[in-house]
Design a protein around this nucleic acid. Structure first.
Lengths: 203, 203
DNA sequence: CACTTTATTGATCGACGTTCATTTCGAACT
DNA sequence: AGTTCGAAATGAACGTCGATCAATAAAGTG
């Protein structure tokens, strides 16, 4: 067969991407199959490789999409947030990971070969979530501490991430640790307070 | 062929385990191959399955071994530690992950199917590292705070873990964050101080 | 109409995890 | 010593995977 012209190249790429993301959400990284993705939208495996070139590139695109959905969810949560926006952030972070286990985990399961690098475009799309958090941290810190805000924000992301990993993989449950999200929030508050933060929501 | 009697079943299991661990350290989780492990020690793939039953069980054993080596290294570091044992802990944690990227990452890359559970023995072996950290946190907290020490210790492990992940996967470097280990240590100190800790090494 | 260009295919390859009928050989027993 | 027995070890076989690429079919072009 030849040009089918049902879809432009862009549309086709989007089809693969959306269906790939759905497949990832359903079966997870370990059971993900490029063949299955192609089959699902009625194209052959060859076409998928023509569009993405590499399995890695498809996985990168899928994970970037997860980042974008994640950022949207966090943004939406912040818009309907009460005064304690830091709690809102942590809850939205955890909430997305818990509600989208497979997609969220796939972000960290996929390790790029040393010779493959994320394109600037992918990095920019993924950076949106981080920027949201940096902005909130900046908003909460006193002016004297704002120079270190980006660095602190990234550190707090790591703090929450670590708690999130142990929550999802069952380590906390195994050790009898309850309410891991509250635990993460305690750490975040301590660090923000130590940096001089003062917010309505902070006790 | 039949009983070769070169090795007892225990020795054979240990051979597979050690060689599997070595293979994992060399190629990482994504490129790990059970066939390759068997070939390396001169046994067939069938024998490996006779011994471990499942690829998951082999991976569990390999990762448990990583936990044990990790704990040993941390223990050794603590024995030759100066007064700042908390810093020593964080440095040893990071140090092992950095020096054993593939083995360390494999711990978190391997997701058990929902129907498979870690045996009590495996959990006990893996828990050694956590216990070391809990002990050090207990030693540093005032008596009034010791009830919460185990919970806080697990939380601090998550804090360091999160920083370690972002260090190894390049996220910190990408964002221009330098000295991620020091960053993690700052967070740990803040939380310990907030809990009333007082140590020689603490500034 | 013929010709070029482009999109799409799926057979093909090597490698993987997994299974299991078959084989091999030490050991126990005449 | 031969015979039997059973545990240990094998590797061919199966289905699936990522990846490749010559072949093919349709659209555009003149």
């Amino acid at each position: 067969m030849g040009r089918r012209s049902d879809h432009t190249r862009q549309e086709l790429e989007h089809l693969f991407l959306v269906e790939g993301h759905k497949h990832m959400a359903e079966v997870g990284f370990a059971r993900f199959s490029a063949r299955e993705v192609a089959k699902r939208i009625g194209y052959s495996i060859g076409t998928l490789y023509n569009v993405f070139g590499t399995l890695d590139q498809l996985l990168i695109a899928i994970n970037t999409r997860t980042f974008q959905l994640w950022a949207e969810e966090v943004r939406a949560a912040l818009e309907s947030s009460g005064p304690d926006r830091i709690r809102c952030l942590v809850e939205a972070y955890f909430g997305f990971a818990r509600a989208n286990r497979h997609s969220w985990t796939a972000i960290y399961d996929h390790h790029l070969p040393p010779d493959v690098v994320l394109s600037d475009e992918q990095n920019q799309r993924r950076g949106g979530l981080t920027q949201i958090i940096v902005d909130e941290v900046v908003a909460v810190l006193p002016s004297r501490a704002q120079a270190d805000a980006p660095r602190l924000a990234r550190s707090l992301i790591a703090v929450v991430h670590g708690h999130c990993v142990y929550d999802l993989n069952g380590s906390f449950a195994l050790m009898g640790i309850e309410q891991p999200m509250e635990l993460a929030l305690e750490r975040v508050r301590e660090s923000l307070n130590h940096a001089g933060a003062s917010v309505d929501g902070l006790k």
